[in-house]
């Protein structure tokens, strides 16, 4: 039921087109949603790619996997199978991760419903999810960081993100 659609956007979006957003004004809906935020952020990160897709499941079910860094995250990001949240302060988190290759990293970031942004010295991870007609639009970005810089090594990044999206759909389906 949560079979993901093929990612419908595997390159940096043409940000002159097809952008939507959220607001705290009196003009109605929010001027920019979480997926839109992710599109904005990658515009400022050379090499960053974004993949988007629809998971055929309600937002709560999808975010239960995506937002659970210790138990759900590694189900669709195998390199991040061993994550331990060290500290939470509101939506700020500090986490420790160990990859399957044994590399360790300390992440700082933000985690709130529909939005996750984490950075370590060598890795950047961005996730967004928004409800869409009973299903969930999700977007993933990130990859190997150019150390200390707001830049991502683009080699293979899109492929890994697409795999992550497919695995996410499978993980949600499995419950």
């Amino acid at each position: 039921m949560s079979k993901p659609h093929e990612p419908d956007n595997i390159e940096p979006p043409d940000t002159d087109l097809d952008l939507d957003t959220n607001a705290d004004t009196d003009l109605g809906t929010e001027p920019i949603d979480a997926v839109g935020r992710l599109r904005v952020l990658i515009a400022g990160i050379p090499g960053a790619r974004i993949v988007e897709g629809i998971v055929d499941a309600p937002f709560a079910d999808v975010w239960a996997v995506m937002g659970d860094l210790e138990h759900g995250f590694g189900r669709f990001q195998p390199d991040m199978r061993h994550v331990r949240v060290l500290r939470r302060d509101g939506d700020r988190i500090e986490a420790h991760a160990r990859s399957r290759y044994g590399m360790r990293a300390r992440f700082d970031g933000v985690l709130r419903p529909g939005w996750c942004w984490l950075q370590s010295r060598f890795v950047i991870i961005g996730m967004a999810a928004v409800p869409e007609h009973g299903r969930t639009r999700v977007a993933l970005t990130g990859g190997v960081r150019v150390p200390g810089r707001a830049a991502i090594v683009p080699v293979g990044a899109t492929r890994e993100l697409r795999r992550g999206l497919v695995r996410l759909g499978q993980a949600v389906e499995e419950g």
């Binding site: 002159d16 959220n22 607001a23």
Partner: peptide
């Protein structure tokens, strides 16, 4: 986001979502 919305909202009206996002893309780029 709130500041950009304050500027874009009264100018772009129904198109304010596009205006906010495109503004922010330009800003971050």
């Amino acid at each position: 986001i709130p500041y950009v919305t304050t500027i874009c909202g009264p100018i772009a009206l129904d198109a304010r979502q596009d205006a906010v996002q495109e503004t922010l893309v330009v800003v971050f780029r």
